[in-house]
Amino acid sequence: CRCPECGSIPLGSQDVDALVLNEEWLRQKLRMAFEINSRDGIDQVGQGIWRLGNSRSTPVILARNLNDLLRNPGLLEGLRVRDGSLRVITPRPVGLTTHPFAQDIEWLVLEERFAFYGGAISFIEPSDQRSAMLPHETADVRYGPFAVDFRSVKLPGHGHINLTEAQAAVFSALWSFKGEPMRAERIMAKAGLKSEKPIDVFKVKAKDKDKPGADLPLMAYRALVVTQRREGLYAMPCAYLESMVPH
């Protein structure tokens, strides 16, 4: 442990077990790093997830774990200001090298984009414009309104909407049929899921109904997928339109 007054101090195993991060201190120091107005309070918006305030009109979100955000894609969408961008701070999971969010969400890796010195935390700006843009390329729109991995979809009036793996698999399966109506069992088999109908993975769970933005993936599904209930067929017209465009 490095003490500001004494320098480096070795710690025994019992000392390490007794150390606990002062999370309130960390949140306040991160707010100072972004020069967030002190009148903006810190709001806990989920388990281990906080909204630190606005930095130049852009909401700043801190989460203990990236997976907590990926499991609830509608949460971030509900925190946007007039469909604007977001800045999200999390540690980097082991082995993750690609950008996990939509293109308009700036992911700030806690251990890489911040420095601790002299009792304060400072934000490390990217060295150049190219390095700032590279992490977002994987989330760019590639297939109609979808990202290359189908983990986000751009919906007019709502911007980029993040999707779960199951939701992305359903959209990817529908896209592969190029707008041709298909029965539910074939779509779900293509997606590798056990649910009976495509809409099943988009339904909002009871525990998430009050969470802001939880219904956005379902809204995207209803906007993009045409259902013929009597025949039990499903199709995504935008996939057909995209297939007709010369490449």
Results as ranks from 00 to 15, higher is better:
Arg2Met: 10
Cys3Pro: 10
Pro4Asn: 12
Cys6Gly: 13
Ser8Gln: 01
Ser8Glu: 02
Ser8Val: 06
Pro10Tyr: 05
Leu11Asn: 02
Ser13Gly: 06
Val16Gly: 08
Val16Lys: 13
Ala18Asn: 08
Leu21Gln: 12
Glu23Thr: 07
Glu23His: 08
Glu23Cys: 12
Glu23Asp: 09
Glu24Gly: 09
Glu24Asn: 14
Leu30Ser: 13
Met32Ser: 15
Phe34Ser: 03
Asp40Leu: 15
Gly41Trp: 04
Gly48Asp: 04
Gly53Asp: 05
Asn54Phe: 06
Val60Cys: 02
Ala63Phe: 11
Ala63Ile: 13
Arg64Val: 14
Leu66Trp: 14
Asn67Val: 14
Asn67Lys: 14
Leu70Cys: 06
Arg71Asp: 00
Arg71Pro: 00
Pro73Tyr: 02
Gly74Ala: 09
Leu75Ser: 12
Arg80Trp: 09
Val81Cys: 05
Asp83Val: 09
Val88Lys: 11
Pro91Asn: 00
Leu96Lys: 15
Thr98Leu: 11
Pro100Trp: 15
Phe101Pro: 05
Asp104Met: 15
Leu110Asp: 13
Glu111Arg: 06
Glu111Pro: 05
Glu112Tyr: 12
Phe114Arg: 04
Phe114Asp: 04
Tyr117Arg: 13
Gly118Gln: 13
Ile121Gln: 05
Ser122Arg: 13
Phe123Tyr: 10
Phe123Asp: 06
Glu125Met: 04
Arg130Cys: 09
Met133Ala: 11
Leu134Ser: 01
Leu134Phe: 04
Pro135Thr: 10
His136Trp: 05
Val141Glu: 14
Arg142Cys: 03
Tyr143Ile: 08
Gly144Asp: 14
Gly144Phe: 06
Asp149Trp: 07
Asp149Val: 09
Val153Thr: 04
Lys154Ser: 02
Lys154Gly: 00
Gly157Phe: 13
Gly157Arg: 11
His158Asn: 10
His158Tyr: 12
Gly159Phe: 01
His160Arg: 12
Ile161Phe: 04
Leu163Asn: 00
Thr164Asn: 00
Ala166Arg: 07
Ala166Leu: 04
Ala168Phe: 03
Ala169Asn: 02
Phe171Asn: 01
Ser172Gly: 08
Ser176Val: 09
Phe177Trp: 03
Lys178Asp: 11
Gly179Asn: 09
Glu180Leu: 00
Pro181Tyr: 06
Arg186Tyr: 15
Arg186Phe: 15
Ile187Cys: 02
Ile187Met: 07
Met188Arg: 01
Met188Ala: 01
Ala189Cys: 08
Lys190Phe: 08
Gly192Met: 07
Lys194Ala: 10
Glu196Val: 12
Lys197Cys: 08
Lys197Asp: 08
Val201Arg: 01
Phe202Ser: 03
Lys203Ser: 13
Val204Glu: 11
Asp208Phe: 05
Gly213Cys: 03
Gly213His: 03
Asp215Pro: 05
Asp215Met: 10
Leu216Val: 03
Leu218Gln: 03
Met219Ser: 12
Arg222His: 05
Ala223Cys: 10
Ala223Trp: 07
Ala223Lys: 04
Leu224Trp: 10
Val225Gln: 03
Val226Leu: 14
Val226Pro: 06
Gln228Gly: 02
Arg229Glu: 08
Arg230His: 06
Glu231His: 01
Gly232Lys: 07
Leu233Asn: 01
Ala235Glu: 10
Ala235Val: 06
Leu241Met: 09
Val245Ser: 00
Val245Met: 03
His247Asn: 04
